[in-house]
Design a protein around this nucleic acid. Structure first.
Length: 856
RNA sequence: GCGGGUGUGGCGGAAUUGGUAGACGCGCUGGAUUUAGGUUCCAGUGGCCUUAGGCCGUGGGGGUUCAAGUCCCUUCACCCGCACCA
């Protein structure tokens, strides 16, 4: 018997699918559409295992839905703008465009070798001017709608490289290349008004039941709607005021200080001339702009020496601090501190010797004796030591305090969001240019639509630090479209989340030159029925896309609010890490076990230590290039393995042994079918008049498998679907056929098995389908029908417990009554032994489930 | 720090959603075939006890229940995100 020639067969089928344009689609109103979308890759150079996992999953969905008769759109493209291309340009002296496009070529070939059911005619790259020109138009429309504006905001600044640093480029508060402490710098930047939709984005989450609960919760927390009071403290010895926001106005009587963010406009003014302030500022500046960095930094404060009046207590004064843990972007950038009921305030108060006054007393505590030690009390209770609030419950006290603040004219109750507007400005070359012109006479002037796209110049140099667009000799110098005088282009480019916020719409009409997409085509395909991607995108990309969809609809581009009906977030692909004797990371392929079972370098045999199993990442070198297993074992094996063991939403540990197991299964199945086909009928077209008991049993397994696999695919439990396929193949392998109906059932079993595995391992499935004599191809074949009558059995085996411990199993007719079940249970020897001479107190019978005999 | 998640044999995981814990696979052990090895096939495989059989067992502790991996309380460990990485 010939062996399965994986390479030959896989190439053959990929060619056939391509020639037949099996996965190219057009709008067809006679068919229900199904849009399955996997997050598009950044063209970093090579595909990684995360891609393999992502696209294996979307491919299962695409092929399954196609088999169900849907008009399936499953596109692919490239999130091609971004920082790594510029880094490569600096390091390898290549142009970002050249680097990016050659990466795309390489990765496209790699993806094609996976045999994905993709409509490659819709391939897009976001770095192409014919892609980004449409988003420049969108931006101008957003601007007209008042959804885009400019304001000052803080960036990480590298004083040596004279460049803005991404958070990623800040390592321990220092620039990654220069090694000098980063500074914060304020720049005028472009923003999109996502906060305009905060309420809507939040409310819609409630109805999005196609999304994982955890993602909805994360977005809910990210948007962070809260209700509180915004009010002003009068600054003593001045007619100025400090405005704060608080969700806990009820604790105002416990206030012991007021604190401002170091970025607060008043900070400089209140403390600028004080001794030590400069040192303090320098310390704050060195923390970086990321929220994690700020929150985790040691809490430090600077006493401005100024004081404010307590709004409720006549004559009481509170010191004004500047504190590094106050975020300028949240609320008003200033707070009042109530140490007894907020942990951060408590830590701060302990450090600077400020009062800790409990004003909320837990139910079971005595106000006279209740004190706070090292833990702030944030739970419910009754107010105390709080004048007109004393005795009230927290929620009532909050309302009462706000009412009082409003009566006093100091402030109001407000709804506050944690969500900030989306800063889209980047001071980089490899991004979409912001289509604006700065004119000394006319101010900010939008680039006229007929002048779009504003194209990136090709001749740029990365020798000089800073933004290449800014120091390009000619690019930015233009005539003002309004007055014709000399003017300069905006040199900021967009955040690359901009491109990924609408690419799903571009796929609907990928080659439209005149507009981003035709409205009717988008209306046919959108929203995406099933979106699949990494959980790391749970908030930013997914929230930006939801916002963008609303903004585009507001500007008349489309008529939907939500872009993704169902969302699935896959887990990561992990691998062990290795370090050599110098503590440097080492690739798994450079490591092997020696005869004593210790990890050593392949080259030289020096000792290596194994570290944690974590997400595959270039920086830790714990990566496996999918190309190696693709070449060795073929696409089906790698697809099967990556779908097999772990549930798709959980992290998966890459395993060579597991991959080999998948490969063995493929070969085994081929052999098994080649043997079996000798005896099976030519087709299943003529159904036998009667079936043997063994044929009946096999058929019931077959049909249960079809139903089970379909169910598992729909609920994204691909690992279980694979297990069921293996089980059926095991059954078929062990099946002893004796008569005609047995052979018929066997053929039916194999045919259905092949259809079931087609979404996962399509090359082998097509090959076996052909071997069975079909002149159709599986890519065009419908999902097999389930004969429901074969799924029900007339007997059921259930467990018998004695005092909750399993002692026997009994087989009963389905839906047998309680007496019958009880009788059968008590007649089992194992049960009698366990009961012994103890008294039977109760017998619990759950029909078709369990019998539990309680003795004592 | 804040937010989200995960924890079941040597390993990845399954468990009809409160009802037979360990499906399916990897690994391992023994055997057969072939052999230079791999491949392939058969059998076994949670731990402990001397067996028919029994006891223990789902990160730890406590609880609810006839019955808990599943529900409640508490605790520990690890992983992910945090707005300029994509």
């Amino acid at each position: 018997m010939s062996r399965y020639n994986i390479k030959e067969a896989e190439n053959k089928w990929r060619k056939i699918w391509l020639e037949r344009k099996s996965f190219e689609v057009t709008e067809d109103t006679n068919k229900d559409k199904y849009y399955v979308l996997a997050m598009f890759p950044y063209p970093s150079g090579r595909i990684h295992m995360g891609h393999v996992r992502n696209y294996s999953l979307s491919d299962v969905v695409a092929r399954y839905r196609k088999a169900l008769g849907y008009n399936v759109l499953n596109p692919m493209g490239w999130d091609a703008l971004g920082l790594p291309a510029e880094n490569a340009a600096i390091e390898n002296n290549t142009h970002p465009a050249k680097w990016t496009y050659s990466n795309i070529e390489a990765m496209r070939d790699q993806l094609k070798s996976m045999g994905l059911a993709i409509d490659w005619s819709r391939d897009i790259a976001t770095c192409a001017p014919d892609y980004y020109k449409h988003e420049q138009k969108m931006f101008l429309d957003f601007y007209k709608k008042g959804l885009a504006y400019r304001k000052e905001s803080v960036v990480n600044w590298d004083p040596v490289e004279n460049t803005v640093l991404a958070n990623e480029q800040v390592v321990d508060g220092k620039g990654w290349r220069s090694g000098v402490p980063v500074e914060r710098r304020k720049l005028n930047q472009w923003f999109l008004k996502i906060t305009e939709y905060a309420d809507d984005l939040l409310a819609a989450l409630k109805t999005m039941d196609g999304w994982p609960e955890k993602v909805r919760i994360m977005q809910e927390n990210w948007i962070g709607k809260s209700f509180g009071a915004q009010f002003k403290f009068d600054l003593i010895g001045s007619d100025e005021q400090v405005e704060v926001f608080t969700t806990r106005p009820d604790t105002l009587f416990g206030a012991s200080f007021v604190a401002l963010s170091p970025d607060h406009p008043m900070a400089e003014q209140l403390a600028g001339d004080k001794e030590g302030f400069e040192t303090f500022q320098a310390k704050c500046r060195s923390v970086g702009t990321s929220e994690a960095a700020i929150e985790q930094a040691e809490k430090i404060g600077f006493d401005t020496g100024h004081k404010v009046k307590h709004p409720f207590i006549e004559g009481a004064e509170l010191p004004v601090y500047i504190a590094n843990f106050i975020l300028m972007d949240y609320g008003t950038g200033a707070i009042f501190g109530c140490p007894a009921h907020d942990q951060r305030d408590l830590d701060f108060a302990r450090k600077y010797g400020l009062d800790v006054i409990p004003v909320v007393i837990p139910e079971d505590e005595d106000p006279a004796t209740f004190t706070i030690e090292n833990e702030a009390y944030t739970g419910p209770g009754k107010l105390a030591n709080s004048d007109f609030l004393s005795g009230l419950a927290v929620d009532v006290a909050i309302q009462t305090a706000i009412k009082k603040i409003e009566e006093l004219g100091k402030g109001t109750g407000v709804t506050q969001f944690r969500l900030r507007d989306w800063g889209v400005s980047r001071q980089r070359y490899w991004g979409c240019p912001v289509p604006f012109i700065h004119c000394d006479s006319c101010g900010l002037v939008p680039v006229p639509e007929e002048d779009l796209p504003v194209q990136l110049p090709d001749d740029v140099s990365f020798d000089k630090p800073g933004n290449p667009l800014d120091h390009h000799p000619t690019w930015k110098h233009v005539k003002c479209p309004c007055c014709g005088k000399d003017a300069v282009r905006e040199t900021d480019t967009f955040d690359t989340f901009f491109e990924s916020s609408w690419y799903f719409a571009r796929y609907c009409d990928a080659h439209n030159e005149h507009e981003g997409f035709a409205k009717d085509k988008a209306a046919y395909w959108l929203p995406v029925d099933q979106y699949i991607g990494g959980v790391e995108h749970a908030v930013l990309h997914l929230l930006y896309s939801r916002f963008f969809t609303r903004a585009l609809s507001a500007c008349g581009y489309m008529d939907i609010d939500e872009p993704f009906t169902r969302l699935y977030t896959q887990g990561m692909v992990n691998h062990a890490t290795y370090k050599d004797e110098n503590g440097k990371w080492v690739f798994p392929k450079d490591v092997q076990k020696d005869e004593n079972g210790h990890w050593v370098l392949v080259d030289g045999g020096a000792s290596v230590t194994q570290g944690n199993v974590v997400k595959m990442s270039k920086s830790k070198k714990n990566v496996i290039d999918p190309q190696d297993p693709l070449d060795t074992y073929g696409a089906d094996a790698i697809r099967l393995f990556i779908l097999s063991d772990s549930p798709p939403d959980r992290d998966l540990e890459w395993s060579e042994a597991g991959l080999e197991g998948a490969w063995r299964f493929i070969n085994k199945l081929y052999r098994q079918l080649m043997t079996a086909k000798e005896h099976m009928p030519e087709s299943c077209d003529t159904t036998p008049e009667s079936f043997s008991d063994s044929a009946k049993k096999l058929r019931s397994t077959t049909h249960a498998t079809i139903a089970g696999v379909a169910n598992d695919i729909e609920s994204f439990q691909m690992n279980k679907a694979v297990a069921k396929i293996r089980e059926l193949s095991n059954h078929l392998g062990e099946f002893k056929a004796e008569e005609e109906s047995d052979y018929w059932a066997m053929r039916e079993g194999y045919e259905r098995l092949i259809c079931c595995m087609n979404p996962m391992i399509p090359h082998l499935a097509e090959e076996l389908w052909e071997i069975l004599g079909h002149d159709t191809i599986l890519a065009d074949t419908r999902w097999p029908e389930v004969d429901e009558s074969l799924l029900t059995s007339d007997t059921v085996t259930i467990a018998v417990q004695v005092n909750g411990k399993m002692r026997a199993t009994i087989t009963l007719p389905k839906d047998a009554d309680k007496e019958m079940a009880e009788k059968a249970a008590l007649s089992e020897s194992g049960v009698q032994r366990a009961v012994g001479d103890k008294e039977i107190r109760k017998v619990i019978v759950v029909p078709n489930r369990i019998v539990n005999i309680v003795v004592g």
